[in-house]
Nucleic acid binder design. Structure first.
Lengths: 379, 379
DNA sequence: GGATGACGGAGATACGTTTCTCCATGAGCA
DNA sequence: TGCTCATGGAGAAACGTATCTCCGTCATCC
């Protein structure tokens, strides 16, 4: 049997196998046109009279034709898939601390991707080639990449657009989005001071990610500017037990603070428990704010003021930036010719946060209010 | 230029383009072996001496070779991708009501998939060909499919394994997993009765999904068996406002219940608010239980007893069943020869729930306890 | 009346793998 | 010497699509 005969006879010889999905060839044969015509008709390309188009579409529909995503991806170089990379601790993707934030952010990202015809795949930053190589991505969102992150560098080297949630320390990304952590912390400290706080303490982390670093620096700078001695405890944020211990230590100090801001989600609960142990009334003896996306703090006694990082908005923005980069890439490749995209060119975007004021940070008026929205954009 | 010359010269002519990823051909050329040998060496197949293998691996590493997922998928028919289909309401995937459940379930599913070398893609049940056709799936998890779900039927017709979370009403699936809703509801009703409830009410939904239906039937059956007149309000579960209204209506009835079980996550908060309006003390005048995965109910006043569906376990199980089906499929195809898999063959699995007992359902002992731990094994 | 161009569509190639088939070589053995 | 086998590896055919190139056919225009 010659190669040609084999090729043309393939369908008939294998059609006996059940569940054989119809291919573009079958549609072409059934419609009495060429493969080219079918492809053009279904994709709205080429120059075809409308009657041909509708006829081909009819036949395709009748045969239940579904184009092979794999073949299309191979041919076009586009998969319509974007990755969402998370750091893992142990078996689970993303940490306990980040759970509420991540869940909201991932949901918004998924939604934003779908709105633009992309699908989102959650991938762990750790397991390298196992899964990563097996999925064709058009680009990746990276959450909180570490300094000189090897994985991000690797992705970038492959020419994949990478957008990071969290200002990247020292790794090349196409774009990034972050909250204005500096402004957020200053806002909280001012808010506490206005409520009567004299000695504001901080519960912070020992890790070197941007969020922890920027927030802590903002706190220290504020202390310098108002002449307060810094009062803080740092602990490994991924360990929930360490958080409870650190909260206790902070309130056990001889120079006990009269207000505390906790950088991580569980801090509110931990601080509340510690305050009870030391018979401190909130907010009378101790003002409390923590950074959290959880609605638990609306139901605690008293309800705790929280800083929301607005993960929905971050997720949406990050995905849209990524898709912009993916879709702008083809045209950019043709026009621009410089070898290395200038590092200063990387577009970063700062998103506002929202302070949800509840009883725990209000000594004067016990009413629950919400802070006025900031003008978006600057600082 | 002949075709052969063109083919062999391709790399050299196009190498001038930047960011050209190395292909298997380049590795073969650099290592001085054939493409076959490279493929075999990297995939651990064929019969090759170890020195050849390591040499090829070295060269591949040096060139930064990453196999094309698209090409591999096209060739092997396996993408390593599984879908997670959710029903959508409006723009967002999954409803407000299901949020905590879904977040946990999705996380566990993602984790379970990654553990077995698969990645998980969240896809909306609605937008049909837009995205669905563009991603090559090895199988799909469907959450709570409706009766005669056309999408599930379509997937199944294409020969894709489908596993559903929630016993499927009347659509063909490969397997399914569900909680034992009947037993769960009976357990709760007994628990409330033991705590002194005489007239137990139910807050239920108007939709026809399995969860709502089975739970309501269990309630009605229990009422019949103990001779209590049913007291329930049904509302469209996807509308949070309707839930608050229904909770109010239930407590406003002349034959007001002295205990209520709410089938949906926000019911606890809504019932608590309604109870306050009618000056009912919980648990003294009204016992409360609701089905929820949210930890909000540990912090309410009083803390509310909840039924957890253990979404983590469900997500893990569902994914593992799906992957079993995917990987068992190839061998099954060769041996079995029957045209239609018998419907009775579909393997279903019932998972236990967990009642987290808190103050809202305990009239006698005010201590907060947790139900006795089950025999260990899974989360 | 022949060059021109729009129209409608077919052929063939390439995307980058995996894998089936088959070949060369040399050792072992009668 | 001639035969079989195991070893190591090469060739080439798919997988199913998109798209580049090109070809015939009319109608039109100078």
């Amino acid at each position: 049997m010659t190669a040609a005969a084999n090729h043309h006879g393939r369908r008939t010889t294998t059609r006996t196998r059940r569940l054989e999905r119809a291919g573009i060839r079958d549609v072409a044969a059934a419609a009495g046109v060429s493969i080219t015509t079918v492809s053009d008709a279904l994709n709205g390309k080429g120059r075809l009279p409308d009657e041909t188009r509708t006829k081909v579409r009819e036949v395709a529909e009748r045969l239940g034709y579904r184009p092979s995503a794999a073949a299309r991806t191979l041919r076009t170089g586009r998969s319509g898939l974007i990755g969402l990379t998370v750091t893992t601790y142990g078996q689970e993707p993303f940490t306990f601390t980040e759970f509420a934030y991540f869940a909201e952010m991932a949901r918004a990202a998924t939604s934003a991707a779908l709105n633009r015809g992309y699908a989102l795949v959650v991938l762990p930053a750790s397991s390298r080639h196992d899964v990563w190589s097996n999925v064709a991505l058009d680009g990746t969102v990276v959450i909180d990449p570490s300094d000189h992150d090897p994985m991000v560098a690797d992705l970038y080297r492959q020419g994949l657009p990478v957008v990071s949630d969290g200002k990247p320390g020292n790794c090349p990304v196409t774009a990034w989005v972050d909250n204005d952590h500096h402004a957020a912390v200053l806002g909280i400290l001012d808010h506490l001071a206005q409520a009567g706080a004299r000695r504001i303490g901080l519960l912070t982390g020992t890790s070197t990610d941007t969020y922890t670093r920027l927030s802590t620096e903002a706190y220290l700078g504020w202390c310098r500017s108002v002449g307060q001695e810094p009062l803080y405890e740092a602990y490994p944020a991924h360990d929930p037990c360490a958080g409870a211990v650190a909260a206790d230590r902070l309130l056990a100090r001889p120079d006990r603070p009269d207000a505390v801001y906790g950088l991580f989600d569980p801090n509110g609960t931990d601080l509340l428990a510690a305050a009870r142990r030391y018979h401190l009334r909130v907010p009378d003896d101790l003002l409390l704010v923590c950074c959290s996306e959880s609605d638990v703090y609306a139901a605690t006694e008293p309800p705790i003021t929280t800083l929301s990082l607005k993960p929905r908005r971050i997720g949406t923005t990050v995905v849209n930036l990524l898709i912009d980069a993916i879709e702008g890439q083809s045209s950019a490749n043709q026009s621009s010719d410089d070898e290395s995209p200038a590092e200063e060119n990387v577009s970063g975007q700062l998103m506002p946060t929202e302070l949800i004021v509840r009883r725990s940070s209000q000594r004067r008026s016990p009413r629950t209010t919400v802070s006025a929205p900031r003008p978006p954009g600057e600082t």
